[in-house]
Amino acid sequence: MAGFLVRRSLHGAVLVALAASLTYLLAASALRPRAHFEQRNPRPPAAVVDAELTALNLNDRTPLLRRYAVWAGGVLRGDFGRTLAGEPVAPELWRRALVSLRLLAVGTVLGAVLGVLAGAYAAARRHRPADRLITVGSFAVLSTPVFVLAVLLQLGAERINQITGVRIFEWAGEYTPGAAEGALGRLRHLVLPTLTVVLVQAAVFGRYQRHLMLDVLDADFVRTAMARGLTRRQALVRHGLRTALVPTATYFAYTFGFVLLGAMFTEKIFGWHGMGEWLIDSVHRGDVNAVAAVALLAAVLVLLAGAAADIAHAILDPRVRAGR
């Protein structure tokens, strides 16, 4: 067991190191931070730009491998370098990650739960109108890219605001700057982006859970549970759903990367200053260190999610727990 954990952690560490290094090398060679400095008005002399770039370890005249060595050495000491503005990357990264977390936490969990319930219900009512409705709904959401879905929701919210004459929904930023609006205001800002995340998450999990549930619908153990004296509905919930939830828990962790991606779009569209928005802006600015830091964090998160999936699986499924 211990040996297994060590091997597995080592494997993960190697993957993260490779992924982060690759991203850094790619970003450092493809992005043009020089352009960002040269665009200033008045245009600074080349020597000044060079000095500034060198100070940030971003000078494209320094050999790529030397820049990489400096960056990697820093990362090993916990120093992620500085942004183009000269701020240290690490604190900004955590601040942004927290914003993303505030946005995502409710949406992902709520969406997954709703999806599981809808999927299980649809499977139990297979071929009935309720099933068809849920299936069509999840299909429609799954076929709509997040950036279209978000705009559609904004359009809908605008219409509701107009009809009621009250600004029920807000969709710019996490709060209205300068306004003393309190918790309610923050909530108003949270509704639409959360709804976006919930819808997508629910559609994904609904499809998945329906499929899993169909497998246990005619399972022998559900029939046994009915033979004991449970009604079909009780048997499906207490035995069928309980068993069909095992893969879902794993799936929840594995889809984490996908959630991160969706979050990026959602943040950008709703003007939240989270990690995703930061990443997109940093790429546009050519901020190599910020991009590399986000990549590193994302890789770590994806791997941790994988480990969490395995642990969840082991907790929920005694067959795995026993190790046979």
Binding site: A19, L22, T23, L26, A30, R32, V283, A299
Partner: peptide, 19 residues
Amino acid sequence: TDLLLVLPAFLVLAVLGPT
């Protein structure tokens, strides 16, 4: 395969975007 799964695809594509 594992490495590519860990690599943030969107990020890499965005970085390569100008090219």
